[in-house]
Design a binder for these strands. Structure first.
Lengths: 354, 354
DNA sequence: CCGAGATGTCGAATCGATTCGATCGAATCG
DNA sequence: CGATTCGATCGAATCGATTCGACATCTCGG
């Protein structure tokens, strides 16, 4: 019962003493980076077992080695919301794949409030910034001061940040062209969050000017290259509920004022839009075309196939992990630009004759 | 560019020197746990800014303080699969809630292969064992040696482990009674993994005897208290695909040999079963009743409402977090037993007349 | 005007390991 | 057989902070 309290955790020094060797030799046994005779090794290991020694203290080891074996994964949402987005899960899949058998733990850090505080407090050897739709500059600054290599997924290009980027603008443009070719002229966009406060509402030029949400702006810009007049409303997150919320604003109006197509900046948002269309009895794609972004698996959440821009999500995660490993090895990480592909499903069709 | 390489990261000592104070005083400024005059404080902070000092090194601080500010979350599956289970997401929600504003990071550690190795290498102040369906003894032993308090969710009771437990056996029994009352006699069970290897296949007495999968065995035991002859097949994980896989074994047989009801040990498994029933044209609940476990939100994955045992998942996470905080504060954590409730949905009905 | 108490600052020990260079005996080689 | 090398071991410095006890200064009551 009170063993735990009474017996202090044994240290390497205690093990060395018990085995009758010096601490340095004992250390060699556990780290395996020096020549040790078999006899000595066994004596040390026996002593460790006798004392119930659990191996070198990770904290002390980290301090001395200058490595903690931990990769920080910095997310935008709350912990659980982060993992509710299949996009992030795919990224995680890729990261796990890319990290391979390196023994690195993932420390998940929600960047919800006061950026920097928590970021600066946790030990980590490198950081991956996940889905940087809002302003990441403060976080990056905090990490840079700590000399922590940063890999950012879809962030605005910055010094000392290895970018794993996506052709957001070009892809969105292709999506918009698809709609334009189908005759759509009245198109609305449901965007990802536009600022750190995740304000919900119409995207005005003023808001765009002060926004640092790279991905959001790029995707919107791509659409407006083709459809300059497309109105846009920002969601407060990439969730089905948010998509539905914005969709109600856009669709619950007299039929004449309704857009004939909605571009959602994520598949989850698109599902929300489809759900509301269904509620309101608006036929898709006869009366309304919907296009998403990401190309994640939607597990039977919708009937048919969502027209969307499929991005190589797992690949993205894998490349991020590889960039981290490169940075850890002292090699310069290579920035990457990935490409999305338009998948035409059953949610887009010719614009209804007006 | 090469600033990063050339200029070594400044230390507290450098800041102290620059400010003309001792290291101890500088430390006091950052940790805020001693009296420092305003003038001194400002001088130190100015020096820190001048040197671009990012604050005390987390690793060094952890070593000295004996606290790393990190909670280990030990999972059974791969990283991404863990978070694909809505059950675990709900737990995470609860953990986040229970941790509140304590500045604690969550280190996610998949306990896939060689238990203990990674576990022992990462710094953490406490560990939460998530969904312990398979054998956790080795992990617990490794953590205990390191004097890391362990909170286990639904694990077999062990010394020095704070258990957050669920009435698995009783709940399953109530589910089985519901089926029995409806006249079902030929009932099959799709179980969670039965062993660390996650072997898929029929659950034989021999396998049960060597299994340490607490949750799995309890839930199965509960069913067999009512329906002793229920056959059982173990899945290799709590996923829709696994549920479907086992369901095909059970349902793709001549109609006379088919069970009239299937008890799935998780909602995800149940969804897999429903999917296969649909594929094979078996009407639910007219020809087949299906019951799940967990009561998680299934986001339109099925038509109707799943009959299932709803457990207080968020509460479970919250209690686990509170137990962790208690342990960290030196207080003894209180073991908890939570209760599930049978929710009767549209997937169970009277047994078909044979 | 002196001693008690409060306040601010400092030096030194400490947390638990890793690692560099030195040492020493044994084996190898010419 | 002496010089050299190699393998095994050890001592001591180091990683970057925190914290305890000591010390100096200042305030205030008596």
């Amino acid at each position: 019962m009170d063993d735990q309290a009474s017996a202090p955790r044994p240290t390497l020094a205690a093990v060395a003493a018990q085995a009758g060797v010096s601490v340095s030799t004992a250390s060699l046994v556990f780290s395996g980076r020096g020549p040790v005779s078999d006899a000595t090794r066994e004596r040390v290991l026996a002593a460790a077992t006798a004392l119930d020694y659990a191996g070198p203290d990770p904290t002390a080891r980290s301090l001395r080695r200058g490595r903690s074996g931990v990769i920080g994964v910095v997310t935008e949402d709350s912990l659980a919301d982060t993992f509710r987005d299949p996009m992030n899960l795919a990224l995680l899949d890729g990261i796990g794949e890319g990290l391979g058998d390196e023994r690195l733990g993932l420390l998940v850090i929600p960047r919800v409030s006061d950026p920097g505080t928590e970021l600066a407090a946790a030990p980590m050897d490198a950081a991956i910034l996940l889905g940087c739709s809002t302003d990441v500059a403060p976080s990056v600054a905090a990490l840079r001061r700590r000399r922590v290599p940063v890999v950012a997924i879809e962030a605005v290009p910055m010094d000392d940040v290895i970018a794993i980027d996506l052709d957001n603008r070009d892809a969105s443009r292709r999506g918009a062209e698809h709609l334009a070719q189908l005759g759509h002229r009245r198109v609305a966009v449901v965007t990802l969050p536009l600022d750190a406060a995740r304000t919900r509402g119409e995207v005005t030029p003023a808001r765009m000017a002060t926004s640092a949400a790279h991905t959001t702006l790029e995707r919107l810009g791509g659409v407006r290259e083709v459809l300059p007049d497309a109105v846009a409303f920002s969601a407060s997150g990439s969730t089905v509920d948010e998509g539905a919320r914005i969709a109600r604003l856009l669709l619950d109006v007299p039929a004449g004022e309704r857009p004939t197509a909605i571009v959602a900046q994520s598949d989850l948002l698109a599902v929300g839009v489809l759900r509301v269309a269904d509620e309101l009895g608006i036929a898709v794609p006869a009366e309304l075309s919907v296009i998403g972004f990401d190309g994640v698996r939607l597990e039977g959440a919708i009937d048919g196939v969502l027209t969307t821009l499929v991005q190589p999500a797992i690949e993205k995660g894998r490349l991020a992990a590889e960039a981290v490993l490169a940075a850890l090895a002292g090699r310069a990480g290579t920035p990457v630009l990935l490409h999305s592909e338009l998948r035409i499903g059953t949610t887009t069709g010719p614009a209804p004759a007006s």
